[in-house]
Amino acid sequence: MSTDVTASTVTYGDHADQHIAVRRPSADPRWTAVLIHGGYWRTKYRLDLMDPLADALADTGVAVWNIEYRRPDEHGWAATTADVAAAVAAVDADGPVAVIGHSAGGQLALRVAADTDRPVLAVSLAGVIDLATADERRMGDGAVENALGHRFDPDSPDDVASSPRHRLPLGVPQVIACGTDDDPNLIDISADYAQAAAAAGDEVATVTAPGDHFAIIDPSDRLWAATLAAIERALPL
């Protein structure tokens, strides 16, 4: 990490997972990135998945808030949703903010961006942003059912609120990115979502380029470089 970056931890609750790893540049940040890791909403995956991206962004003068949260396999879906909302509310930023989620974190990013009152850019990196399709196709060994505690129910207001595809328009600008070498299910979900969001009236930029599921969070990969360029073009001023 650059010597011009200060690292700290911000807590937003009493549980060990209710914390945010913050990286602040010494000068005023160009913008603020809120990172939300994936891992199919399972506890064994943690915020360190996003550390390389967080370091790289901080070294370019971006303030980075890499959030941890209680996962639903141990704490229930309501706890996860509440934690992400509380973490985003705890972010101290005056300028543009992008909420960036990878994989399952893409779902969390788009939901919290739609729920929050602060102006943000919502970014999905190979996101599981259609819970009905992910559940129907049993992606991640039934990850949606495991997270929600039941199969996706289109008649459940909370299930619909949790699935970005089912609550369009979100009313916030979005970047939807997915590598062409990723899981075909995620490629399908991202493409369908972007088309539907634009048709619903949302401002949507798409990124597709060679790369797999982890290339998109690899700061040295051209897929991430293309995504970062799209993010910086789309940031609300």
Rank of each mutant, 00 (worst) to 15 (best):
residue 163 S to M: 06
residue 156 S to V: 05
residue 80 T to C: 06
residue 142 G to K: 08
residue 165 R to P: 02
residue 61 G to D: 09
residue 98 A to H: 02
residue 150 H to F: 06
residue 107 Q to W: 11
residue 90 A to T: 09
residue 171 G to H: 13
residue 96 P to V: 03
residue 155 D to S: 14
residue 111 R to M: 08
residue 61 G to T: 07
residue 162 S to A: 15
residue 177 A to W: 12
residue 114 A to D: 05
residue 117 D to K: 13
residue 128 V to G: 05
residue 150 H to K: 11
residue 100 I to L: 08
residue 65 W to M: 03
residue 89 A to R: 15
residue 147 A to F: 11
residue 59 D to Y: 09
residue 158 D to N: 02
residue 169 P to G: 02
residue 108 L to Y: 12
residue 145 E to G: 15
residue 143 A to H: 08
residue 154 P to T: 12
residue 60 T to S: 15
residue 120 V to Q: 11
residue 178 C to V: 13
residue 119 P to A: 05
residue 78 A to P: 05
residue 83 D to W: 10
residue 89 A to F: 15
residue 150 H to C: 08
residue 98 A to V: 03
residue 171 G to L: 09
residue 96 P to G: 00
residue 154 P to Q: 11
residue 167 R to K: 15
residue 155 D to C: 06
residue 104 A to G: 08
residue 177 A to M: 13
residue 90 A to Y: 07
residue 132 A to R: 15
residue 126 A to Y: 01
residue 162 S to V: 04
residue 94 D to V: 08
residue 128 V to D: 11
residue 170 L to N: 03
residue 75 H to K: 08
residue 72 P to C: 05
residue 93 A to N: 01
residue 91 V to P: 02
residue 161 A to G: 07
residue 172 V to P: 08
residue 79 A to L: 06
residue 76 G to N: 04
residue 79 A to V: 05
residue 65 W to C: 01
residue 73 D to R: 11
residue 88 V to H: 06
residue 139 M to S: 12
residue 79 A to M: 02
residue 127 G to S: 00
residue 97 V to M: 02
residue 69 Y to S: 00
residue 132 A to I: 08
residue 112 V to C: 09
residue 108 L to A: 08
residue 160 V to W: 14
residue 84 V to S: 10
residue 92 D to I: 01
residue 155 D to F: 07
residue 91 V to H: 06
residue 82 A to M: 06
residue 70 R to Y: 11
residue 72 P to L: 05
residue 134 A to I: 02
residue 170 L to V: 08
residue 95 G to I: 00
residue 175 V to I: 05
residue 101 G to L: 03
residue 67 I to M: 14
residue 83 D to Y: 13
residue 79 A to D: 10
residue 162 S to W: 11
residue 63 A to C: 07
residue 105 G to A: 03
residue 178 C to M: 07
residue 173 P to K: 07
residue 64 V to M: 01
residue 60 T to W: 14
residue 120 V to G: 07
residue 149 G to A: 04
residue 89 A to M: 07
residue 65 W to Y: 11
residue 76 G to R: 09
residue 176 I to K: 10
residue 151 R to A: 15
residue 60 T to Y: 12
residue 177 A to F: 13
residue 124 S to Y: 03
residue 84 V to Q: 10
residue 77 W to E: 01
residue 154 P to K: 13
residue 168 L to R: 13
residue 79 A to C: 02
residue 139 M to G: 09
residue 171 G to W: 10
residue 113 A to M: 04
residue 62 V to I: 14
residue 100 I to F: 14
residue 136 E to N: 07
residue 125 L to W: 12
residue 152 F to L: 04
residue 90 A to S: 14
residue 91 V to G: 03
residue 153 D to T: 05
residue 129 I to L: 10
residue 84 V to F: 15
